[in-house]
Design a protein around this nucleic acid. Sequence first.
RNA 1: GGGCUCUUAGCUCAGUUGGUUAGAGCGCUACCUUGACAUGGUAGAGGUCGUAGGUUCGAGUCCUAUAGAGCCCACCA
Length: 914
Amino acid sequence: MSEIPKTYNPAEVEERWYPFWEARGFFKGRVNPGKKPYTIVIPPPNITGILTMGHVLNNTIQDVFIRWRRMQGYETLWMPGTDHAGIATQNVVEKSLIREGTNRHELGREKFLARVWEWKKEYGGTIIRQLRRLGTSCDWERERFTMDEGLSRAVQEMFVRLYEKKLIYRGKYIVNWCPKDHTAISDDEVNHTEQQSNLWHIRYPLVDSEEWAVVATTRPETMLGDTAVAVNPSDERYRHLIGRRLRLPLTDREIPIIADDSVDAAFGTGMVKVTPAHDPNDFLICQRYNENVDTAHRMVPITILDTSARTNDAVPEKYRSLDRFDARKAVVADLEAGGFLVKTEPYTNNVGRCYRCDTVIEPYLSDQWFVKMKPLAQEALSVVQDGTIRFYPERWVKTYEHWMTNIRDWCISRQLWWGHRVPVWYCVGDDACKLECREPIVARRAPASCPHCGSTNLRQDEDVLDTWFSSWLWPFSTLGWPDDTKDLRYFYPTDTLVTGPDIIFFWVARMIMAGLEVTGDIPAADGSRRASRESIVPFRHVYFTSIIRDAQGRKMSKSLGNSPDPVEVIREYGADALRFTIVYLAPLGQDVLYSNEKCEMGRNFANKIWNAGRFLLMNAGETGVPDVTPELPDAHADLADRWILSRYHSTAVALNEALEKFEINNASKILYDFVWHDFCDWYVEMVKGRLYGDAPPEVRSAVLGRAIMVYEETMKLLHPFMPFLTEELWQNLRPRGEGRSIMVSEFPKGDRSRIDTATEAEMSFVQDCINSIRNIRGELSVPPSKEISLLVRFDDPSASAVLMKYEGYFRRLARVSGIREHLSPGKPPQSAGAVVRGGEIFVPLEGLIDLSAERARIEKELNHVAGMFENTSKKLLNASFVEKAPQQIVDQERAKLESFKTTMEKLRSSLEAL
RNA sequence: GGGCUCUUAGCUCAGUUGGUUAGAGCGCUACCUUGACAUGGUAGAGGUCGUAGGUUCGAGUCCUAUAGAGCCCACCA
């Protein structure tokens, strides 16, 4: 069968099998009461996204789990979909509008949204198409989008329910405002970075005396919006000043000195300027102050910036319409000129930046919608603490706990157009309306009229909801929630969530909260009530993936240009090679330094597997592939056959265990070592003698049949990792019949009772002998073409019998032409020798032996053994070791000492003989 | 300021509950195109497991301190 190519060609194979699987519906998850479900929901990639190495890792892991469980007989569903990504998508479309010389305001809301949908239709599926190249076995017919009709309904339902439970409220608060995106963002969307700045000390004169107060600030421009100066009430230095008034420089306003406990007397001067409209802490000070004064004396926050962070009309004319940083320069200059600037000291402070556009965030007072998180967090915390949901690696529990116990309310409104519109209407009222019906109307559907006054003049809230407000429903909204669907009953809760630790707060925590909050009223598959926590958490296991970095350890980023394009990598190395490499490189919970060349490892491995298959098929070429019969495993089996079966079963057992424990990179190592080192390096070499030689046909057939059987089963073990290659090989090995596929074959469990330790021990003895001969050949530069003979001497005659029985192995693996016993004492003349378990082996090298090389070789070995001998005897001379260590260990050490001793003796006599 | 992780061969990393003088891949050296595979084979060189203490009969593995690298959280102006 010379038509099988010498190297594996992934491109051709991949493009053939993916449509094959899909067309036969293997990816589909169907409600099937006869089977246990196994469900994964994909972390929905942004529609603006393109595939990154992070996605590759993430989705390969999910596919490994899904394919493994599918083959194990679970009814698997891998639910795919995409996220509408509010700000990101709106930005992309706005940019293209700007290129066209227009903008969204010119276009108007409705037309703009039409444009975004158009964009989505055109480009929103890019990442999904790329994902398919990886071989992901998602149920594509179920693909969902966070803005599709069903999911939008889920969002509205959730909003209304939480509002009715008073867990959603609206209020004027300081939020993180992005002056570039013109929207509020949540606390988690702010990145803090250190920045070299100044601390400006400013003098505020008292109104009725020559004294003054000095405040320190990093944002001097905000002084234009100051409404007070605060001191700690217990600060003796300033107690007499409380209640007195200051003249605010650069303005004609007077502000009071007030007391507040939050002021740290030790910081700066111990006096703080209070700008309630532009600083979250100052806002709280203002609120506390207002609680204790009558209405007439309330402090009113003064907003001095507009939504672009330019100064507004609330500041003196001179400073109006300035960007905040220009305003800062102007204010500092005038303070200095006016003698108000006491000093300027260099200062490093943290500034918050928008996670999208890196613009410095402005704390901004505005009306926003919030979710009250504390009541939701409680349960969500305990299901993780009590193990109902498990994290892998476990240490993320701590991070989770910390966040959940310090959780703050979630600002969910965004001043964007692209997103789920807040399902709230306000009665604008009409002439007939005499009522103060400013109450928001929160409804699942647009109300026809105001329930208070009957006016039909209603206006919907302009804001949309944070993208995560749809994502946190993902595990159940994709299954049909809020409707009670068969899918939901059967597939919920999902099993494993695979995601990056960077979104543990954004997404993982919130999904847990949402699931616990609303899924309790969905009946279970048998119609019963979901009473247990296990049945209402959105998933049972969370696998936190590694973060992929470049070879220098930097995070992959667009701006650095260091993110490889996985589609290119697939083209160059193949999808299986990429999948295997990335999983092999990514231990649970550790970052991964990745570069494309590393895929050579996976490619070489794929090629190795390919060629092992090629070898088997070439041998089957003449006679055909023998059938697998019940007798086959043991028919005409010799050492190598029994050994590979034993190794195969322990590999299958270990692999399943590793996957159960989510040790996916360990699982890939187990496969790599078995295939390459056990199967190819040893076993294939050892069967060659019987395949090429003149073994009786029934022996040859048994040997070949068994080799192919083990190989086929190994393809199944490999399939979750390398789906394309294994399908191709599995299909090539024998005719399978229409619609059959390795991906729906049974995943091998491995049989512990077939793990044969006696055979493994015998094999390792043979391997040791062969390695010793190879070492002699290599070190003494015996040409590979030169055949050698072997002389052996063992205390136990059965050992020599074993070697002679397997002379064929020695011929093939060490080019040994014959084995004879050497019973006389001493070593044969002109020979090199090695000590092996229970005896010695010699290689006569008449005329070839280099005495000094042989001496060096033996001396090295002797040194090695002597070192171990010394170590062991030291241990045994230590009375407390013999006394305290377990008997078994002590016996072991004693046996070792004996064997080191005899080995040394033999090596020494060899040296003397030279 | 709090929390977490990492430090093992030139490079990238494994090393399960403490028990032989520590492994892999890549790279390096030598040899080999033998009838699966040069994307291969065989042999070899290369490590006082960051440092200092401690627990233990025994520590890469457990504890403490310390140095370096990185990440996350935090309203000190």
